[in-house]
Structures are given as structure tokens and as C-alpha cells.
Design a protein around this nucleic acid. Structure first.
Lengths: 204, 204
DNA sequence: CCGGCTTGCTGAGCAACGCTCAACAAGCTA
DNA sequence: TAGCTTGTTGAGCGTTGCTCAGCAAGCCGG
């Protein structure tokens, strides 16, 4: 009123791409403290220094926004896990496992929050991570030089669930050494789908 | 207006216990179609034929309501899985496994919706099912006549995650026969925590 | 310099929903 | 009849997701 008609924070104008990226980034930063679906448009807009309306200019609705955030988180994980091209097959799986545990160790709550959000509630969000997992199965089976029939796919997916759960517990209460954990996980996987499966008696 | 001042549906007065049970029951019926946290008070009250206000008389807030619904679902599962007293130990685990698969086969979407809701999002809801799982671990380890040290607990919990995931996939795409599935799950468990563990090299 | 176009952006406002509160009413007891 | 307990409701408030008409900043052709 007393001052100029310009707002205190002069309106910051960005390109569409920049703004979208910023909003997703803010979502990522809020992930550890807030379940994805409970992010409020108000809070995100406030942190971005924009109006609520603008967020709806970039995302049709709230769900589209937080699925975008979830996808961004899944992509970060995916890129971190993927073996460098040229890695010999036998090292690929151990490498991915090692990096996965490292990832969980580094981000702890943040990652657990992501998994929770991805596992539960909204089907749209679940589908995002389910997609990433499916791609990881392909990579894993290829690295193990095994065919990916339906049964093996299911077993590797279930082994992911096992791994996620176990590593999640382990970072909070390390009941074994890190190398032992890695060996265990690799042995379980080999036992499940390896070419001379110790467990997979149910061949077809 | 034209008729008496009484409402069309004459007010149905119930005891506190009955009303609470009815509301929880309605929540259970809505579970398969709606993620727990997205249940609207309006919808539940409408189905119960009461005002929104009354629901808040029985549950302090929305979360308290849907955790009650979740707990009810978890209790149903728990009661269905528990071995009958007097069952010989070696039959207890196979029996629980058999009943678990039967449960998932029977309720399919309903159960998957429950697991999703329990796994994701709201920590309060997660805790409800986490509690049930912890009790199941105790039962399982006792049935296997194994000590329940920290490592074994973690492994059995992770094996639950494995089982839930695999059975969830299997009911949608049966890649093996039912007995083969049960054998596989039992073998994996034995391999993980048995007294001569095929996989548990990481002893402490 | 001006009109017009594109496009990033906002404010007012609506509808749905969670939640509160004062008060009514049905049944019991005295 | 009076009074107590307790199941129940309607009005209403604040927040939140979402819409819409329109402003404003930069860029263009004339």
C-alpha cells in the first residue's frame, strides 16, 4: 500500500521446463518428511514462491503432480543402480546389490518414505515404481544370463520385495556385517532362480 | 414440509458398541474399492444412515477411524492364520501357509487393497499391520522350534514380504501349481532360518 | 513507437471435506 | 413429572483441491 504496487518479491518468471523441474525438486525434498499423497499444493507453491494456480498450470491435478515426483525419485534410483555399460555379467548383479544397499544407507528415511509411498495407497503411484521394478528384473535376469520366463520374473520380483524389506530393517538394526548381508541376498537370489536352483524345485 | 416433522428414515438409535461396529464394518466393505485413507466421512456416514457428526463422536478424527478399520482387517487375517491349539509344531507353519494362500485366493483385490493400505503412506496405519506381522513371526519361530534372535526375526519378516509379494502375483498369474507354491515358500523359509540353513551363512 | 501475440503468472472464488459445537431427543430412573 | 444419561443432529468454520477470467512480461512485425 505505502510502497509501490510491485510485490515485495518481484515476480520471478521462468521457462516452463525450469518451473516444472523446480516443483518436482521441491516435492523430492518434502518426500522424507511427508507421505507423497499428503503433500499440500499450498505448501509446495509457498516454497516455490508462486501461487497455487500456477502449479495447476503445470500439473492437471494433485495426483499428476505427486506421481511426477514419485517418477523422479524412481528415476534417480534407476540411474544409480544401472550397471555401467561393459561391466561383465557376473559383476553386474553384485554391483547393483552393493549400490542398492549404499543408496538405502545414504538416504535412509528418504528412501523408505519413497518405498512406502510407492507400495501403498494410490494405484497410479504404485504403477510408477512397479514399472521400474519390472525393468530391473529384466536387467537382473540378463545379467545372470538366465531366460526370463514368467515364473522367474515373479520370483525375482518377490526377491525384490524381500530385499527391500530386509535392507530396510538392516539399516535400522544391522544384525550382520555389510558383506554378509550382500552375500545373503545374492545367495537367496541364486537359490531362487539360478540354473541349478537349490530352492526352485517347482520347475515346470 | 408437507408431512410430519419426523425424518423419512426415523432416527435409528443404537448402542455405542453396535454403532462403532457398524461403522468399522462399512469401512471394511469399502476397503476393496477405495484406499483406506481416501474413505470420506461423508460416504461412510451416508451408508450408515447417520450424520457426519456422529462418526466424530466415536472416532476423534478421520485417521483414528481408518486405523480402526485397518486393525479390524488385520485381526480377521490374524484369527484366520493362527494354528488351532494342539496342532503339532511341524504342521503349524504349513497350515498357516496353506490358510494364507487360501485367504488371498478368496479375497484377492480386497486383501491386496488391505496390504497396499497397510504398507504405504500413513505411518499409523503401517504400524497396525507391522504389529500383526511381528506377532506372526513369534508364532512362526516358535512353530519351527527355533530361537528368535534379532537376525532370524528380520529374515522371517523379510520372508513375509517375499511371500506377500509372490502370492499376490501368483493369484493373478498362477505360474506353478498350488502345492508347488506352498513347497517353495516353505523351502525358502527353512533355507533362510532353519537349523541347518542352506542360505544363512552369515551366522553371528 | 505501437499494436498484437504468446505465455508465464495471479487473485478471487467455488465445492468438497475434515472437524467443532451447541443443542435436541430417546429412554431410563426416581 | 422431573432429571439424568447418552445417542444424535444441523449449522457452520477453516483448509484444500481446483477453475477461470484476466494481468503482465517479453517478443515480434509494422
Amino acid at each position: 500500500m505505502t510502497a509501490s504496487s510491485r510485490p515485495a518479491h518481484p515476480r520471478e518468471r521462468r521457462t516452463a521446463g525450469d518451473r516444472r523441474a523446480q516443483l518436482v525438486q521441491i516435492g523430492l525434498e518434502l518426500l522424507p518428511t511427508t507421505p507423497v499423497q499428503e503433500l499440500t499444493i499450498d505448501e509446495v507453491a509457498r516454497r516455490a514462491g508462486i501461487s497455487r494456480s500456477l502449479l495447476f498450470h503445470y500439473f492437471a491435478n494433485k495426483r499428476e503432480y505427486y506421481t511426477a515426483v514419485t517418477r523422479a525419485a524412481a528415476d534417480l534410483l534407476w540411474e544409480h543402480l544401472l550397471p555401467a555399460p561393459g561391466t561383465p555379467p557376473e559383476e553386474q548383479v553384485t554391483g547393483m546389490l552393493d549400490r542398492y544397499v549404499g543408496w538405502v544407507e545414504t538416504f535412509r528415511e528418504s528412501h523408505l518414505a519413497f518405498v512406502r509411498g510407492a507400495a501403498g495407497g494410490d494405484p497410479w503411484v504404485s504403477e510408477v515404481y512397479a514399472d521400474t521394478r519390472r525393468r530391473l528384473v529384466e536387467v537382473a535376469l540378463a545379467a545372470l544370463e538366465l531366460p526370463d520366463d514368467a515364473l522367474r520374473r515373479q520370483l525375482v520380483l518377490a526377491w525384490f520385495a524381500f530385499t527391500e524389506d530386509l535392507v530396510g530393517q538392516w539399516v535400522h538394526e544391522p544384525t550382520t556385517t555389510r558383506p554378509e548381508l550382500l552375500d545373503l541376498l545374492r545367495d537367496v537370489l541364486r537359490g531362487l532362480v539360478g540354473d541349478r536352483p537349490a530352492l526352485l524345485r517347482a520347475g515346470r
